[in-house]
Nucleic acid binder design. Sequence first.
RNA 1: GGGCGGUUAGCUCAGUUGGUUAGAGCGCCACAUUGACAUUGUGGAGGUCAUAGGUUCAAUUCCUAUAUCGCCCACCA
Length: 749
Amino acid sequence: MDKAFNHKLVEPEMIKKWEDSGACTAKIDPSKKPYTIVLPPPNASGKMHVGNALMVAIEDLLIRWKRMQGYSALWLPGTDHAGFESQTTFERELKKENKSRFQYDRKTFYNMMMEFVLGNKHAIETQLKNMGASLDWSRYTFTLDDRSISTVLDTFKKMVDDDKIYRAGYIVNYSFKYGTTFSDAEITLKETKQSLYYIKYGPLTVATVRPETKFGDTALAVNPDDARYQKYIGTEVEFEDALGKQKIPVIADSYVDFSFGTGVLKVTPAHDKNDYEIGLRHNLEVKSVIGVDGKMNALSGKYAGMKVLDARKAVVEDLQAAGLLEKIDENYTSLVPVDYRTEDYVEQLLMPNWFVKTGPLRDAVMEKYKKQDVRIFPKWQEITFERWMENMHDWAISRQIVWGIRVPAWYSTTENPDMTVTFLGSEGKGVTGKVGDLLKTYSFEQIETGLQSLMAPISAKYVVSKEKPGENFLQETDTFDTWFSSGQWPLITLGYPDSEDFKYFYPTSVLETGWEIITRWVSRMLMFGVYLTGEVPFNDVYLHGRVMAVDGKKMSKSLGNVINPEEYQDQYGTDALRMGLISGTANGKDFAFPKDKVIAFRNFANKIWNMARFMEMMFDDVAKAGGTVKEFSANMDGLQDMDKEMISGFNSLVKLVNESLEKYRFSDASDAIYHYMWDELASKYIENVKSREDKEVALSVLRQLFVSCLKVLHPFMPFVTEAVWGEISAIRNDSEDLLIIASWPQVEN
RNA sequence: GGGCGGUUAGCUCAGUUGGUUAGAGCGCCACAUUGACAUUGUGGAGGUCAUAGGUUCAAUUCCUAUAUCGCCCACCA
C-alpha cells in the first residue's frame, strides 16, 4: 500500500469496479423490500453546482446504506429538459452567431435544441459518476424521451376528460423579451424606484405608476368606507384625455386602501391582476391596450404602436401640457414583478392560456398529508408547505416556447378562421395574420410546415388528441410548463401505469431536494401522484438547506464567490467533499460551505488508509512469528476489558448511525463514525494493541471492528472504504468482494 | 404587511423532550515523535450561549418583548 491515500488514483478505479459489478442495477425481488429515490433531475442547461453535489452526497448515502441493509435499493437518474431555462441559454448561444429563433420553423429549432441539450447531458452524467453516485443507469430517463412524452400527453388527455383543464383568458405574467408566459412561481417581486403620477380624472385625482394604461381603465374605485368620496360612488365622472371626452363609473371596493395616494384607484382589468379581480366583482369591461408585441394597440389612440415605456413618457408629457398632471412623486418605490432567474421585467397581460384546476387535486393531497402518508423533514418546513398549498391558485401550464412538450390540442382552420398564426413563408420571412385570410394566399401545407406560433381565441373549438385528428387541423403551439412534466417524474421514470418497476418500486421512499423548489415541484408531484395513482409518490420529503459561499452569502456569478465542487474533488478528493457537505447540514438550514471540514475529512480518509496499512503490518508480524489471529466472536476467550468496551462502543455507534439516518440527521451520524474511528479505534485502541502480549486476540478484535467500521463509513465515504476493502482482502474476515454490496453490521439491542 | 429561521469559542457550525465542569472541525499556543499516518500524537488557552423580563428547585433549552441578519409568502395602485 502507498504511504498516503491517493484519491486521484483510486476514484476512477472504484467507479469502474462498481459499474462492472452491476451492484447499482436494482432487481425486482419479492423477498426484499424496495427502497427508491428518484434523483431530482439536474437541468440539462448547464453543469452541476455545489448544491447538486450536496444532493448527490445525501441521496447516495441513503441509497448505499439501504442497499447494504438488504433492501432492493433503486436510485433513478434522469435529466430534465428545463424548457425555458434551456431555451434561453441556447438562444444566448445563437445570439453570439447573430441568429435568433425567429429564423427557424418549430421543427428545425426543436432539433437544434435537442442536439444542444444532449451535449450538456453527457457532461452531467460524467459529473454524477465522478461523485460516486450509485445510480441505476440502466433505467435512465430524459423528460423528452418518447415514453415520457407519451405519459405526459396521456395525463393531459385524462385531465381534459375529467374536467380538470380549461382554457381561459387570464392575467398572466408575460415576458416580451422571451415571448412567453411565466407561472406565478417563476415570478419574484423586485423593489424598484418608480415615479408615481397623480392624474386628474375630472373632480378626482388618481395616483398611478402606469399612466399609459389609462386607456384601458374601465372604472375608478374608492373604499366604501372612505368619507371623502361617498358622493361619487355609483356616479360617473367626466374628464378629457387624448381620446377626447370620457365618462367613467366610480365604484366602491374594499380592496382600495384609502391611505395610499389619494385613495382613488384606477381600475385596469386587462393589465393588473388585482384590477382584474375587481373587474370580475363589479362586472367591468376588460379593455386590453397593450399587445403581445409589447406595443400599445389601437385602443390607445395616438399612442398606438409605441412601446410601453415610450408611451408612458408621451402620455405623461401630454397630460402635463394639458394641466391634468397634479404632481409626480419621484421617490416612490414599489414591488415590480420580474423573472426570478433573469430579473427581467414581466408585464401583466390578458391572454388565452391552458389551466389546471388545482383545487380538487390539492384537496386530495392534503387529505393524504393529514393522515401522514407523506412526512416532511425537517419538521419546521411543514409550515412553508401548508401555506403554499392553502394559497395555491389555478396553474397556468402553457408556455409560448418551442422547447418542451407541445400541448396536444388541435384547431380546425375552417372552424376557427380568426386564429392568429405566424409562419415562416417561402421567402424565409415571418408572416402573421388571421388564418382565414392567410389561406386565401397560402396553402395549408405552407402554413403548417412553416408554423412558428398560433393564438386561438378563448372561444376556439379544439380536439385533444395525440395524433392529428384530420385535414386542416393545426396543433396548438404552446408547450407545457416544465413542471407539468417534471411533476410526473416519479411516475414517468418508473413506467407508470403498468410496468413491473412501477408495481414494485412505487411509491418511492424519499424525495430529497432543496427547499426552494418545494412550491414549484414537490407540490406538483404530490398532486399528480395522488390524482393518477391514488397514492402519494413518496412517503418522506427531506429538504436540504442551501449551500452558501465561504463568505456566508448566496453564491452568484456577479459576486464571484461561486464554489466549483470539482475543484474540491480534485484537491481533496470526492470523499472529503461529500463528507464536508454532509457534516455541514445538520437540520436543513442554509449553511456556509465548510471548507475546513473538507480538509479535515481528507485527513480522515488518509487516517483510514493508514489504519489499514498498520493492520497489515501487524498481521504480517504475527504470521512471521508462526501465530494466527483468532476467529472473532463476541464471547471469545481472552477478551480484556478494553476489548469489551470497544465492542460495545461499536454497537452503540451502529445504533446511533441507524437512528440518525432514519431521522435524516446526517451530521450526527457522520460525526459519530468519525470520532469512533479516529479517537477510539485509532488513537486509543491501536495504541493499546501495540503493547499487547496477546496479539492473536487483540488483532482479532481490531480486525472485526475495523472491517465493520468500513461498512458503516462506506455510504459516507465510498471511495476510500472500498479501496481499503480491496487492499486488505487477504486478512479481512468477510468474503464479500465489494463493500458496496457487503451487509450492514447487525446489532442486538 | 403576514410568516419562517438564525444570533453559542477567532472562523464555520452542533447542542435531540430544561438537569453536573456548554461540544466539534479549523485556527491559535506548548510539548512530543522512527512498529501506520506530519494529511501525526499529547496537552492547553478561548464562550456574560444577541439583549431585557418572566415561568421553574433549575433556562443555551420554555414563554413574552426588543434588537439584528437571512429567507419565504403577499392584492397598496
